[in-house]
Nucleic acid binder design. Structure first.
Lengths: 251, 251
DNA sequence: ACCCGAATGTCAGCCTGATGACATAATCGA
DNA sequence: TCGATTATGTCATCAGGCTGACATTCGGGT
């Protein structure tokens, strides 16, 4: 259901080799990683030409915790610094809709996740703000570069199609998970979705904002699950102890 | 936010001309209509070759009210009758997740809407059941035909990309609309989204299932809105009287 | 014209989650 | 090492939605 989650490991291998001095090789290596993250390769393998084309347009950017990659309501053409396609290389980015107390977390981007392409394709402003949760390294693709990749490289367009399809399926799954389910079921679902290697590294405040409930309500359920031995609750961390039981609760 | 809604009119014009006896011309006309429904033409106009290719693979199917186009959990390869891409030509189809009392309506397909392609692209089973609300005419595209269209016609692939992007944007918008908003705001949003020419032709039971609330809760809010002159409530119909006020309530 | 199924309108009681508040504990930076 | 900040844990109160039930109204079919 969250295939991109499993792509964090290959990336770690890649960066381990990035010590080499050759900048061009580094760009190519990044492009190869992007090629692995965007869509499925089943019916459209990318050629060396495709990968090097991607490398041509990629730039790397760093963000401090709390910094915004892009902001709610930003038109695609208005801020060339932020508009365009973002591909998360390391760290996580929370997508926030609404301001202040009414803020809700639409999604959390993990390494390998892609965003901003939909807004580019539809020429619409961002409906949410992207805020770095930790130190974040992200790859950026400007609007015209993206257009050129799609136009001149059919295999890339084909792969991007399944990438967006993946996200649509996940998004619909999220809607199903939100409609008419008990709070416990919703929370279990989110914990399973958001866990990386059995741990959810998010403060309860953020998890609560992902489900659209108040923090005390979330805390009550979490402590109950902890008493039942299903999870462990720490400071900024929730540990999955019995994933099967949790999946059963999310049913 | 729901661009496909405005495509119902062109279709009606098209069928008005469909009286002609030539089957091949009818197929081409259907294909041209599909070309108008799938994605935006901005950067990828479809050639005559593209359109006739679409016509090659299209078949037309009729469904009675209550009949299922496809069923929850159905694998893409299992039932060639139902797997594949569906394009609604007339009538509406509700997408239901969950069974019996716990059923919730993920979405309602209107004429011009497309579905089933995501499941094909990701080789996954349908996560919901498609059930005809009225008499439905739908165009069907089998798996291999769809693959061939995408593989051999870059312009079609490009258009399909923005079609799925549209749906992803709408889906995310729905999530934002569900998180942490008052019942009144959620209901106003759904009424605005689902209205065709100022009318929502759905029983309250269905509208309630779209938001994941019980029918009495919905009815209470509806009667309140009616007292305030914002909407009119009829038998199986909700009429928008003051769309602006409704939009303000949905904010 | 009549009947039947389906949809709407409404209610009282219960239960869940929201609110706002407070105390405690962990982390981070100076 | 020591605040300052942020996170967790918990509570009493209250509003809002659920539940199950019932009466009423509408529409289509015979």
């Amino acid at each position: 259901m969250a295939p991109s989650r499993f792509l964090t490991l290959p990336w770690q291998q890649v960066t381990a080799e990035t010590a080499g001095p050759d900048a061009e090789m580094a760009a190519l290596r990044q492009a190869a990683w992007v090629a692995r993250c965007v869509g499925r390769g089943a019916s459209a393998p990318l050629s060396a030409t495709d990968v090097s084309a991607i490398a041509t347009y990629l730039t790397t950017r760093q963000f401090e915790p709390g910094q915004k990659l892009f902001a709610d309501g930003m038109a695609p053409g208005a801020e060339p610094e932020s508009a365009g396609v973002w591909i998360i290389r390391s760290g996580r980015v929370e997508l926030i809709a609404g301001a202040g107390e009414r803020r809700s977390v639409v999604h959390v981007l993990h390494p390998g996740d892609v965003d901003g392409d939909v807004q580019l394709l539809l020429d619409m402003p961002f409906p949410y703000t992207g805020r770095a949760l930790e130190e974040v390294t992200a790859l950026h693709l400007e609007a015209d570069g993206f257009e050129r990749l799609l136009g001149h490289h059919p295999a890339i367009a084909r792969r991007w199609l399944s990438s967006i399809a993946e996200r649509l399926a996940m998004s619909q799954n999220r809607i199903i998970g939100l409609l008419g389910r008990s709070l416990t079921a919703q929370i279990s679902q989110v914990l399973l979705d958001e866990a990386v290697q059995g741990e959810v590294l998010l403060p309860q405040r953020t998890v609560a904002a992902m489900i659209g409930v108040q923090r005390p309500s979330l805390n009550k359920v979490l402590k109950d699950l902890e008493r039942r031995g299903v999870i462990g609750v720490g400071y900024g961390v929730i540990t999955l102890r019995d994933a099967e039981a949790l999946a059963e609760l999310a049913r």
